[in-house]
Write a protein that binds this DNA or RNA. Sequence first.
DNA 1: TTCCAGGGGTAGA
DNA 2: TCTACCCATGGA
Length: 310
Amino acid sequence: MPKERRAPSYTCAVWYDTHPVNDALLNFATSSGFLLSGVATAHGWHALAPYRWDVATGTLHRIEDLPGGVTHLAVTQPDGILVRAGRPLSPDDKHEVERRLRWSLRLDENLDAFTTLCAREPALSAAVLPSGGRLLRCPTLWEDTVKTILTTNTTWAQTKAMAARLVATLGPHPPEDPSLRAFPPPEAVAAAGEEVFKEQIRLGYRNASVLKIARNVAEGKLDLEALKDSDLPTHELRKRLLALPGVGPYASATLLMILGRYDELGIDTEVRSHVSRKYFNGEAVSEKDMRAVYEHWGRWRYLAYWFDPQ
DNA sequence: TTCCAGGGGTAGA
DNA sequence: TCTACCCATGGA
């Protein structure tokens, strides 16, 4: 996934223009200092369907499948978090929206220890300030797992295209509007079969991994969401993630970050080039070199790298 | 045509 | 534990 320092790319989705949202339906407070725009754009997830970030209005759009059906949500921050929806929301819908947003925006995650440590490095502190160290995630670990797999060994443009095809092909939608698609649940993916993936969704060799995970979740053999509240130590959680098909060292570190565990650096070509450029004068670096640079950040290594200015 | 992009799985040493 | 090789996809 790209860091914010990459040129942002905003795809214009049809549903944004054709599905205006209603008046304020849900409004809840956030802690002081929380900045929606900072959290939404601190990494690239906002550009993957069914998320979309509108930079002009500071609105995080998302299509969500709620108890009352699929609808368009538009999230802004005039004061607290304001959510508008494409249809009236029932009390159950509102409860779900708030629960999912609290998780996705990390409203209940305390990163004070990290931001305090950052104060010793002004450039890093400035980079962290807009988001407070919070990186946007998806409502379910299922969705984050699939999207993480879609970032492996490919370009960001292809990751966005793969996510868009997955949502457009299998995402649930209101009966009257097939263009309004939420992220497909594992059951829908499992039911789709290999041919649909090969011909329409085209994830390449990632097809098999995504299908396998979807089937295991759908059949009750795998409970990804249980990992969100897990008390397991990080190394044990890492083992569980590495057991998933298509998830290796890079993807497991990314998913640990999603779960709020920042101990481990997700080594990939971007980390390699960043560390080489900034700390080794452009020379080739080993994995040991890269880890050594952020070692002293302890349980905050991932975030220390992520917000490390060029 | 060939290379390669924010890797993962596997065999063989 | 380390290395080499292969794995779809699609843009350059």
